[in-house]
């Protein structure tokens, strides 16, 4: 498998170096760690941090900046960073008002984040954690993975913190979003780890994998590849199943890494038609590579039920390398 790299074991290190080379005007890397943080630390506000394995770029470093994350940790590819790294991010994000950890529901991420919380609390830093589990492809909610919807939680909690809300209030808003949000994905081709010579699974030219996660693990079901409109119907049905049929929604269409925007916009139109058919109010759509899985081809759909409060937080000012909003008042 061909990859644009020098050394598979140095790929995360070199990514971080490149990231700071490009974005060093607003972001910095904490010495001796894999933590990316804002240069212009705000004196008094709740800190928001996230992190996890690499291979999901632009997540999570791409969401560090005013209005979203204060710090992000990059682990090895598809591997949770250690507790010491999460602790460094907590320390960087703390300005005395406490720190919220936004963690995707994987055992490794949760364990390391919990250990970091214990260490931070020993240092007198107040922390809270919310666990994103938006993937409806998994039946048992306790086992549900955190996927692209995590980015919406970054935006909502980031905006709430920027607005001066307390740690408890920011946490509560994040949990509200998680409760009202569902996602599901399909893969048209698997991904290949930088350290591996073969893809994580193999699909025939006429097959797709339904219900995949973001780590190249196999999905729930393999079936004959469908047209975009049919995939839109399938994913809309599953994500809407547990949500309020009469609600207002925002939709996040997320490319898995190797899916051209040309195709993503076709899919966005198909999703819009599906929602219209069900008389669901669509307030806003986002399209693009938000939470990828290396070079996997495929797409995920996230639906979030919004009220005025959540919508306002989504539209609030943000300035990160991936997500920029002018703000409500401008």
């Amino acid at each position: 498998m061909k990859k644009l790299m020098n050394d598979s074991e140095q790929i995360v290190e070199e990514f971080l170096q490149g990231f700071i080379t490009v974005h060093g005007d607003s972001l910095t890397r904490i010495n001796g760690t894999n933590v990316i943080t804002r240069i212009d630390k705000v004196a008094t506000k709740v800190g928001i941090i996230s992190g996890g394995g690499s291979g999901h770029e632009p997540a999570h470093a791409g969401y560090v900046g005013p209005g979203m994350l204060d710090a992000a940790v990059a682990g090895e590819v598809f591997t949770s960073p250690g507790a010491d790294q999460f602790l460094a991010a907590i320390q960087a994000a703390d300005s005395g008002s406490g720190v919220l950890l936004v963690i995707k529901n994987y055992n490794g991420d949760v364990m390391n984040a919990e250990m970091a919380q214990e260490m931070a609390e020993a240092e007198g830093i107040q922390t809270e954690m919310i666990i994103v589990n938006d993937d409806v492809a998994v039946d048992d909610p306790a086992k549900r993975r955190g996927i692209a919807g995590t980015v919406l939680v970054h935006k909502i909690t980031g905006a709430a913190a920027e607005a001066g809300k307390s740690l408890a209030e920011v946490k509560q808003l994040g949990e509200k979003a998680i409760q009202k949000m569902r996602s599901m994905s399909v893969a048209l081709s698997a991904c290949t780890l930088p350290s591996s010579s073969k893809p994580s699974f193999s699909l025939a030219t006429d097959e797709m994998e339904v219900g995949i996660g973001i780590h190249g693990e196999q999905g729930m079901e393999r079936r004959e590849v469908m047209r975009s409109a049919e995939i839109a119907q399938l994913l809309t049905e599953h994500t809407l199943e547990e949500l309020d049929e009469n609600g207002s929604y925002v939709a996040l269409i997320n490319g898995m890494g190797s899916t051209p925007l040309l195709e993503q916009y076709v899919f966005a139109k198909d999703v819009q038609e599906q929602l219209e058919k069900r008389k669901v109010t669509l307030k806003k759509m986002y399209v693009g590579d938000y939470m990828t899985s290396l070079d996997m081809a495929g797409v995920s759909l996230t639906l979030l039920t919004v009220d005025d409060e959540l919508l306002q937080l989504l539209h609030a000012r943000a300035k990160t390398t991936t997500w920029t909003e002018a703000g409500n008042d401008d």
Binding site: G75, E76, T79, S80, P81, G82, Q85, N107, G108
Partner: peptide, 12 residues
């Protein structure tokens, strides 16, 4: 092990 292995195996 915690800092270098990462994932779930590191903390365990």
């Amino acid at each position: 092990l915690i800092s270098k292995v990462g994932g779930a195996s590191g903390p365990l």
